[in-house]
């Protein structure tokens, strides 16, 4: 099939970017979207032009590195799919495709489709962990965890940290991303001792890093390649409320 691409090109963080049009002739429907871009880049290199820079690594939908908004939707229109797993058979001959980077103030563009997502790491550093030491922990079966709870935690833990939720959010909020970690750890007995502190610290980091506030649009869930549910945001809200109830035994927040 033959396609027309409009790709965001931007030289550096300080430069102004614009959409540049590239024809994509003879696209094989078995190609992945990134392989299609590889071919365009190959052509650009042969012509002596600067190839399109884009983040990618595992190309199997798990590392979370790829980050492109395709026709207005993070990772493209196929549900629960990262752009590296999006295949060209999802498009039709003659389609016009707009390819843009994640857009949010907290994600400054570095070049073309590459953005800086270190703000998400900062949220994790604020409390996305259980403060256990290496070694000196009890046997893994000491505390039975009901299957339902383990499954719930796993549902949340599937987040790949790609940032599609933020790219899709009308407020550029990182609430789904944050809530997935908060909910995972709050559900498990290991995470409970620090639950109050964690939810407060992580949501504070979210705002400090320049993300917006959640106003329940739920675009995040629709864009998430792993189908992380907004019920985890509800869980985060509940955890936050709990953290505000004074307690003499809980850790101060």
């Amino acid at each position: 099939m033959n396609l027309t691409l409009h790709v965001w090109r931007q030289k550096g963080p300080q430069d102004k970017g614009k959409l540049v049009t590239y024809p994509a002739p003879n696209v094989d429907s078995d190609m992945s979207f990134l392989e299609m871009l590889d071919e365009i880049n190959d052509e650009l290199i042969r012509k002596g032009e600067d190839p399109i820079a884009f983040d990618h690594d595992c190309r199997e939908g798990i590392c979370g590195m790829c980050s492109q908004v395709v026709n207005g939707r993070p990772h493209g229109h196929q549900e629960r799919t990262t752009v590296c797993q999006l295949h060209m058979r999802q498009f039709n001959d003659g389609d016009e495709i707009f390819v843009e980077p994640w857009r949010a103030k907290a994600f400054p563009i570095q070049k073309d489709l590459i953005v800086d997502r270190s703000s998400m790491d900062v949220i994790m550093q604020a409390g996305g962990y259980v403060s256990c030491h290496t070694g000196g922990v009890p046997d893994g079966n000491t505390f039975p965890i009901p299957k339902k709870v383990a499954d719930y935690a796993m549902d949340a833990a599937e987040c790949i940290g790609c940032g599609a939720c933020i790219a899709a959010c009308p407020n550029s909020s990182a609430m789904l991303f944050t809530s997935a970690k908060v909910a995972q750890l709050a559900a498990l007995p290991q995470g409970k001792p620090e639950a109050r502190k964690r939810v407060q610290a992580m949501t504070k980091a979210l705002l400090d890093e320049g993300f917006g506030n959640c106003t329940n649009h739920y675009e995040c869930e629709a864009a998430c390649p792993k189908g992380i549910s907004v019920k985890f945001i509800a869980k985060l809200n509940r955890e936050y409320l709990k953290s505000m109830i004074p307690s003499s035994t809980a850790e101060p927040v």
Partner: peptide
């Protein structure tokens, strides 16, 4: 201990 949700 870290909260890895292994299958149960």
């Amino acid at each position: 201990a870290q909260g890895v949700p292994f299958a149960r």
